[in-house]
Simulated scan of single mutants.
Amino acid sequence: MLSVRHLNQFYGQSHILWDLSLNIREGSCACLMGRNGVGKTTLLKCLLGLLPVKTGEIQFNGLPIHKLATENRARSGIGYVPQGREIFSLLSVEENLQISLGARPDKAKGIPAHIYQMFPVLKEMRHRRGGDLSGGQQQQLAIARALILDPKLLILDEPTEGIQPNIVREIGEVIKRLNREHGLTVLLVEQKLPFARQVASDFYLMDKGRLVAEGPIADLNEGIIAEYLSV
């Protein structure tokens, strides 16, 4: 599904990603983990085309995408939910969702019915401004906006950050349903271990710009946690 090969990235003279390679298998829910500052967000920006790749290759469904513009990566089937949600606070919920319609491959004009079925609170509040929603509701809106694209891969950056526990559970259930019932491949960056264990099938662990461990989430043991995740 998604293959990264020998990726290197720099900020000025600082070497941020070091010859990083990983494979996200189709149908999986993979969690990218690591302490703050190890290069997780830089990797996501490279995957999405928000940062140019210095050296290395990114393939999506067997085709190289590392030279494509960000919008063309979205059209190829990659949806993205950024850290901090980045919704349009002055636009209504419905207008936030409509913005994504232009990037759909089928050029649909209306919001697909299953979006409101999955997030009924957004249907109830579709005429409210995005900035008037709670943090949890804004996160649901950000996920729904990415799903409008009908992606094959959904990337979420810290989806539980600043969200109340009951909404975290709801978001976890949505991710699991998308992954297990709808066959959507998911890559998420997540710091909360209980949430990662709840939703993920695989983990990829970064340290100092390198991939240092990977495997089924059940193999994420206390030794690995103590060495690379404990603060």
Rank of each mutant, 00 (worst) to 15 (best):
S76P: 06
I58F: 05
P120E: 11
P120M: 04
D106I: 03
L43D: 09
L47T: 04
L32T: 09
V93W: 04
I111P: 03
R126E: 10
L50S: 02
L20M: 11
E86S: 09
M33V: 12
R75D: 06
G136F: 12
E94G: 06
A113W: 07
Q137I: 10
N72A: 05
G102L: 14
L20S: 02
E57M: 10
P105F: 06
A103Y: 14
S28V: 05
C31P: 04
L51R: 05
N23M: 00
Q117G: 04
K109M: 01
R35I: 02
L22W: 07
C31D: 12
T41H: 07
G27W: 07
L133G: 07
Y116R: 12
V38P: 01
S100V: 08
P52H: 09
L101N: 08
N23I: 11
E94P: 07
Q137A: 12
R126C: 05
L47F: 07
S76R: 15
P52N: 08
P112V: 05
L50D: 00
K54H: 15
H66R: 03
L51F: 08
E71D: 14
Y116C: 08
G130K: 11
Q83P: 08
S92A: 09
T42M: 11
K109P: 04
T70E: 13
C29W: 13
L97R: 10
Q83E: 15
R129H: 13
M125Y: 15
G77W: 01
L20P: 04
Q83N: 10
R128G: 07
L50Q: 00
S134P: 03
M125C: 14
I58G: 11
V93S: 01
L43V: 07
L44E: 07
E26Y: 02
E94A: 08
R25H: 14
L101G: 05
